[in-house]
Amino acid sequence: MHFTVGDLSRTRVADGPDPLWEIVLSMHQLREGRRKSRIGTAERTCPDRRQMMRVLTPLMPTRGYFPDFLTPAAASGGLESGIDAVLSTPKRRLRDELSLLAQHNPLPSWTRRLADGDVDTLRWLGRALHRYHKYVLGPRWPGIAARVEADRRHRTGVQCRAGTEAMLHSFGPMLSWQSSVLCADYPVDRDVHLGGRGLLLVPSYFCRRTPVALLNEQLLPVLVYPACPPVPEQACTPHSRLAPLLGHTRAAVLQTLQEPRTTSELAHHAGVSLSSASEHAAVLRNAGLVASVRERQRVRHILTQLGADLLNAGMPPAWP
């Protein structure tokens, strides 16, 4: 993803979980047979399960393209707003995106009516989305929201204290920020030029392995990424499980970087000398746990995604 200066000023993190992205991405996991005890059990006990899955399954293949109209920007305002936007998709867009889906996935005959914008078929899709969210995701939504909110607080905290570029550095090694270009290990080789529109970063509970983007580059640029679990305060103290691996001082330095800090701030909060703080930060940076951004005469250190994951290692997931 190629940024301009204007794109940096318009890049932000979504205010909360996007219900339609979570539906699509949890469907991917469900069909891959993952998280059976959590998603699969609820799905099997859902009323009218077969009809619901008959609608959703063909539209959400586990690999490759799925229609962009299933994840409209309006879903940031909640499930109802998102489904209303899905049902209001123009006929031409329905036809184009379903035709693209059909190139690599055999579609049932009823999708022809959907491509024609048939009102009853669109309502059928809307009911299936409602039912899936209510019975499969609804009971677990507090835990989903908690993980997304923890990630959002971390990213926006970095952005407020150190700027958007520092926030983009915090995604390493999942995402790499260098010279106005954000790179991801994506299944398809793509170049997206934001062109001054900015980027909406959407943390997701069910996103796994790699981030996901919309195919249609005329739409608002969106990048959905795996939300990192909340890091408990006690996850990395000098007596934690990380201390034997990193050493007591380095484990404490890593924990201190749950908030972006300059080298002098890091030394103060970790209780070490300035030279020692710089040395520990360099070791953690070389290990991919920390990113460092120069700000004039200062260097600010930021916890990366890998560093956050390490702090959270062995902790229970954020489910109720």
Rank of each mutant, 00 (worst) to 15 (best):
L303I: 03
L56A: 09
L214R: 12
F206E: 12
R12A: 09
A115D: 01
K36Y: 13
A75K: 05
T62W: 02
Y65T: 06
A128K: 04
T62R: 13
V272G: 09
T237G: 14
D7R: 00
M174R: 10
L137V: 11
P47Q: 11
Q51N: 09
R298I: 00
H269K: 08
E32L: 15
R250N: 03
A42K: 11
T262A: 15
E265F: 04
T4C: 00
T256S: 08
A14S: 11
T45D: 10
L125G: 09
D118N: 09
G117M: 01
A73N: 13
V293A: 02
Q218W: 08
G143F: 06
L94E: 01
D18T: 00
G117E: 03
G157W: 05
L25Q: 10
R95F: 05
G314I: 09
S240G: 13
Q159F: 01
G126H: 04
G64S: 12
V148D: 08
R250M: 09
R113Y: 08
L223Y: 10
K91L: 05
C183I: 15
L94H: 00
V222F: 06
A243S: 12
R50D: 12
W110R: 00
G40V: 15
V253M: 05
V55I: 13
V222G: 03
V290S: 02
L182C: 05
S88I: 03
Q255S: 15
W110F: 11
L101M: 03
M1P: 02
Q51K: 15
V272D: 09
L303G: 02
V119K: 10
P142T: 11
T237N: 07
S180G: 11
S9Q: 07
M53E: 13
A282N: 12
P108D: 04
P317R: 07
P142F: 13
R49S: 08
G157V: 01
Q234G: 02
A243Q: 14
I144F: 04
A308D: 04
L122G: 07
V148Q: 06
R35G: 07
T262L: 15
L168M: 13
R250P: 01
T164W: 02
D185N: 08
R155K: 14
D191R: 10
V5R: 00
T156R: 10
F206S: 07
L20M: 10
W319P: 01
P67Y: 09
